[in-house]
Design a binder for these strands. Structure first.
Lengths: 189, 189
DNA sequence: GTCTATAAGAAGATAGAC
DNA sequence: GTCTATCTTCTTATAGAC
């Protein structure tokens, strides 16, 4: 049984997550979150002592969601190559929001890297989850540790680049084409 | 002969350009620019009527610089493939700042796409210059118009992805490796 | 053209009643 | 736990003296 406070807290985190993605972290004000979550501004500080703490909670929440997703893929797919393909499939499934707002991880990283290194480190952890998971699956394809690490970064770069250019030019078709191209590259490994 | 005002204006634009890149547009305040340029805040509004106008001037300045650079490459290199390679060389030449602040165009686009579509359109024009130029050179390699357009977006995505991941993980070596990989891809065309 | 002073509003954060 | 009122600081922007 969840306490009332827990429910409200999660509601705030969910709302903040959406706003941080759609408006950017720095461009999202306390009032924005309060208004969208229907929670009075003052009440906020009962749950979070500052704005950065909300981001921390949002990232924590995202990390758990990503973990659960990766676990699901592992349970569902036995072939390592299928796992890599499923990762790239995200570009297909999320094409609408990617074209509109970019990749949630990529844009957060690029925003925070400039003047908020403490927060940036926080955001990098989302990439780390995918990175570690992808590396393991490349190793299952009998690549050495070093090669798997390099191929992983290459794959992350390919997906991030596709997302960024699709966003820049609002071009969902390019995103699809690029995702297909990456899939073919995986098949060729 | 330049008027005094012209000189000051250019100085402001140059300073703003640096700060917008290093801190992000929204995170750069008027006072930041004024302090860095040693121009009193109030004096600013003699040259620009609002903050958005400074961005417009910065972008205009960048567009001219990019145009001049592309022209130089065209004058210097006769082979279309060499031109494409020279474009990718930017990742090598600029690796230090890319790792630190990301790609100036990519990060600006990703920042402005979220809540400032008017400004985003402005920033996209920088990509357009490279896009048109790259397309022309792919066509010189006897690709059809459509293929050249697709290959251009693919190349832009590859460079943007490399820059973003190198920035995320502060990994200059990866950026070099990825640039080499893209060069090899160009050679294979 | 240059600069100071300041208005007007929004931001993050706090105090304290309920 | 919830909410209102408020403080402080920082923002963009303006007025007007020099």
């Amino acid at each position: 049984m969840k306490s009332k406070g827990e429910t409200v807290r999660k509601h705030i985190v969910g709302t903040a997550h959406q706003l941080f993605y759609r408006r950017g972290f720095n461009q999202t004000s306390f009032s924005d979150i309060a208004a969208a979550a229907n929670v009075p501004k003052g009440n906020f500080y009962y749950y979070f002592k500052c704005k950065n703490d909300i981001l921390a909670a949002v990232v924590e929440h995202r990390l758990q969601a990503i973990q659960a997703q990766l676990q699901l893929w592992d349970d569902e797919l036995s072939d390592a190559r299928d796992c890599l393909r499923r990762f790239v499939d995200m570009l297909h499934r999320e094409h609408a929001v990617i074209v509109r707002y970019g990749c949630p991880m990529g844009s957060l990283n690029l925003e925070l890297c400039k003047t908020q290194p403490e927060l940036h480190a926080h955001a990098t952890r989302m990439f780390d989850l995918y990175r570690d998971w992808l590396e393991r699956h490349f190793e299952q394809l009998r690549y050495t540790r070093d090669d798997a690490a390099d191929l992983t970064l290459h794959l992350l770069a390919a997906t991030q680049g596709a997302a960024l250019i699709a966003n820049t030019y609002k071009d969902a078709q390019f995103l699809q084409r690029e995702a297909d191209r990456i899939q073919q590259w995986i098949d060729s490994l």
